[in-house]
Structure formats: C-alpha cells, structure tokens
C-alpha cells in the first residue's frame, strides 16, 4: 500500500469537509477498499473513515420501510432486520464470512457497486432509495454500471431505505473461491407487482430482469418463468463461467427464489 493520512470524523458534516481534501476517499468497513489499496489499484492521499459516525449507524423499521444507516455492518443488518425484512437479513447474513460481516457495511457495498455484490440486488429489487448527504436517489436511477453509481465526488451514502415487500427471497449461487455470487437473484413480491434483480451476471452490474417481472406479476409461479431465457450476450464471461452459463443460472436462481417464496 502507498501511504495515506486517515481522518476519523464523528459527524457526517465533518466527513464531508474532510472529503474536500485533495485525493480524499471515504473508507467504510474497508473489506473491499483495503485489499484494493494493497493491490495499489487506488492511491488516495487521505482516507476519511466513516466508522465513527454514530448518526450513520443503526436500523429502523416503520410504515413499511426499513432504513439502514450507511455505516451499519452486515452482521448488524443480519441480526436486527430479521423480523422486519427476513429476506434482506438473510442476504446480509450470507455476505463473505463472519469476520467480514463484522466490518463490511451496507453503505460501502452500495457505493462500490461491485457487479457481483449482494446488496445492490437487494436494494434494486426492494425499490429502495439511496440516501446521501445531499439527496435521495431511487435505486432505479442509482446503479449505473459496473462499479458506477449516481454518486458525485465527495458524496456519502448515509443511509439506504428499503420498501418491505409482501414476500421476498434472495437466491445465490456461490463462486466458491471468492464467496461472491457467481449469479444471484433477489425476487421481491409487492402488492402492485414483482421486482427481480440480478447480480453477478451482467457486464453492466446489477439489473432488473423485466421479462421475469412481467411474467411473475401476472402469475407468481415457477411455471410462469420456466420458459424465459435471460439474454447472455452482455453477461460476464470468465474462467468461472461463460455468459451463456450465467444467463442459464439467472433463470435457475429466479425459479428457486420463486419456489422458496411459494413453499
């Protein structure tokens, strides 16, 4: 790692001020950023740690919405959201491994938007909202592509809001070495329709599988999606699986998620 300064603000306002420094970058749980720095893929001169900002931690649920502070760890979400939104708690409780979940945060995951990360699928399928220090961004407008989001320079994810569906399930097929999803699908069934978000598959990052949404909104059954094929032409092809294989997995994971909800 190249060396850097570390700032440890205790309020969002102080963090925003610190991020105005030249070549500054926010540090949340560090479970992606620190390995990235070790590989010298990033070289910030200042890291602004969000870990000590109390107003960015914690979980609340009311009026059909779960709100999670940006600096809340996966372990906390897995524990504290279990009653309000069990499918989301299950997603959080299966990220990485226990030690990673004790450090990694929802804000970090959503800000990084790794094309194989779990949280983006949960946020997008839940018709969520990304809250920053300056505005609120609907999930449909937030995830722009692989590692790309609507965040501006110096903007911090202070919270993420989820609409609680009637039922939901997150089904993931692990890439066994990295423990990231090779492909994972989050199906959320709302009174006014079904949302299906896919991670791990597309070269453009998380996306909604709209054909499946239409089919499931009309008939929420495994049979309704059995004949659908996701388009593999713009999917990730690497040594772990071809685009066609990932496209096939999108269908399999969707069917399993629907089956789990209907069980």
């Amino acid at each position: 790692m190249y060396n850097f300064d570390v700032e440890m603000p205790s309020t969002i306002a102080d963090a925003v001020t610190a991020l105005a420094r030249d070549e500054a970058q926010p540090l949340s749980g560090g479970q992606t950023l620190i390995p990235t720095l070790k590989a010298r893929l990033a070289a910030p001169s200042v890291l602004v740690s969000l870990h000590g900002i109390a107003e960015m931690k914690g979980v609340s649920a009311q009026d059909g919405t779960v709100t999670i502070g940006g600096a809340t760890t996966h372990a906390t979400v897995a524990g504290e959201v279990a009653d309000a939104y069990p499918a989301l708690a299950s997603l959080a409780g299966r990220i990485g491994d226990p030690a990673v979940r004790n450090r990694g945060t929802i804000g970090g995951s959503v800000a990084n938007n790794d094309p194989s990360a779990c949280y983006p699928a949960g946020v997008l399928a839940s018709n969520g909202t990304v809250v920053t220090n300056t505005r609120e961004i609907a999930a449909d407008d937030y995830f722009l592509g692989m590692f790309e989001t609507a965040l501006e320079e110096g903007e911090i994810v202070t919270a993420v809001k989820f609409k609680i569906p009637e039922a939901a399930h997150y089904e993931k097929h692990l890439q066994p070495a990295s423990r990231f999803p090779l492909v994972a699908v989050f199906v959320a069934k709302f009174a006014d329709g079904v949302r299906v978000a896919v991670t791990g598959a597309s070269e453009n990052g998380v996306f909604r599988w709209t054909e499946a949404e239409t089919a499931l909104s009309a008939d929420f059954s495994v049979e309704a999606v059995a004949g659908l094929k996701a388009d593999g032409s713009s999917m990730i092809s690497d040594l772990h699986g071809s685009g066609a294989y990932r496209a096939h997995l999108v269908g399999v994971m969707t069917k399993r998620a629907v089956a789990a909800i209907n069980a």
């Binding site: 570390v6 440890m8 540090l27 560090g30 479970q31 620190i34 390995p35 890291l47 740690s49 870990h51 372990a75 226990p98 030690a99 990673v100 004790n102 450090r103």
Partner: peptide, 14 residues
Amino acid sequence: EAVKSCTMLAVEAQ
C-alpha cells in the same frame, strides 16, 4: 467481534 486484522487499519482500533 471477530475481525480480520489484515483488513483493518491500526488507527481504526483507536
């Protein structure tokens, strides 16, 4: 809490 000490900065353990 269990953490991976290779993926946490010393200053974060202040």
